[in-house]
C-alpha cells in the first residue's frame, strides 16, 4: 500500500526523495477542469478517480484515443509528472491532484503552479517543485526521447537528478519543511494548539456577535 492511500493516519511519512521515470504533459495554463472534468466530481469518495485524469484530452469527440502522453503505454509506470507554467489553475478541486496521484504520480516538476493546486498537492504529500523554463524544456525533451530515463527528486539536497544532469529546484520553504519533516498532513498539528485556538476565537469580536 502506498503511504498516500491511508487517509486515516495522523502522522504522515517523511518524504525526502522521489525516484522514478517521468511523463511530460506540455502546455501553459493547464487548468484543473482539464485535469479532471467536472462530471467526474460527482462522487463522494476519491477512490477510482485516477482513471479519469485528463479524460477529455485522452479521448477525442469521436471517441478515439488521442496521442496524449497519458495514453502512451511507455509512460504508464511513470511517477513524476513534468508540466509547464501555471499548472493546475482554476478550480480548487482536490480531485485534480487526487486523480494524478491515484493514476501514479508521486511528484510534479513544473515551471510554476497555481497556488491552491500546489497547496492541495502538498496536503497529499505530493511534492510540486519548480525549475527554470529552460530546465523543464530539457527535462521534457529527455523523457520524450528516453521514456525509461531515471529521474530523482532529492528534497534534502534540493535537486532534480537525471542520468546526465542535475538541477536546483525551488519550492515554498514551508512546504519543503513539512514534506521532509513528515508534517504535511496538518490536522493533528493544528489540533495541538486547541487552547490557543480558543483564545484567538475569544478575542474576535464577531465570534461573540459584538456583545
Amino acid at each position: 500500500m502506498s503511504p498516500h492511500s491511508d487517509s486515516a493516519q495522523t502522522n504522515a511519512p517523511q518524504i525526502t526523495r522521489v525516484d522514478g521515470t517521468a511523463i511530460a504533459v506540455r502546455g501553459n495554463d493547464i487548468d484543473t477542469d482539464r485535469i479532471i472534468p467536472a462530471r467526474f466530481l460527482k462522487v463522494v469518495t476519491f477512490d477510482g478517480i485516477g482513471q479519469f485524469a485528463f479524460q477529455d484530452v485522452r479521448i477525442d469527440e469521436n471517441g478515439r484515443v488521442t496521442d496524449h502522453p497519458f495514453n502512451n503505454p511507455v509512460y504508464r509506470k511513470a511517477s513524476i509528472l513534468l508540466a509547464n507554467r501555471n499548472f493546475g489553475c482554476g478550480s480548487s478541486r482536490e480531485h485534480a491532484p487526487q486523480a494524478l496521484m491515484r493514476w501514479g504520480v508521486n511528484a510534479i516538476i513544473g515551471e510554476s503552479f497555481a497556488e491552491i493546486f500546489a497547496g492541495n498537492c502538498n496536503a497529499l504529500g505530493v511534492p510540486a517543485v519548480t525549475v527554470a523554463q529552460s530546465e523543464i524544456a530539457e527535462l521534457m525533451s529527455l523523457v520524450e526521447s528516453r521514456p525509461d530515463a531515471k529521474i530523482s527528486i532529492d528534497l534534502l539536497a534540493g535537486t532534480v537528478i537525471t542520468p546526465n544532469s542535475q538541477y536546483r529546484f525551488q519550492m515554498p520553504a514551508a512546504y519543503l519543511q513539512s514534506l521532509v519533516g513528515g508534517t504535511w498532513d496538518s490536522t493533528a498539528l493544528l489540533l495541538q494548539n486547541t487552547e490557543e485556538i480558543r483564545k484567538t476565537a475569544a478575542n474576535l469580536p464577531y465570534v461573540a456577535r459584538f456583545a
Binding site: A173, A174, Y175, Q177, G181, T183, L189, N193, I197, N203
Partner: peptide, 11 residues
C-alpha cells in the same frame, strides 16, 4: 487578529 500560532514549518 486570526493568527493562532506559528507552525514548525514556518506557516
Amino acid at each position: 487578529r486570526h493568527k493562532v500560532a506559528t507552525l514548525p514549518n514556518g506557516q
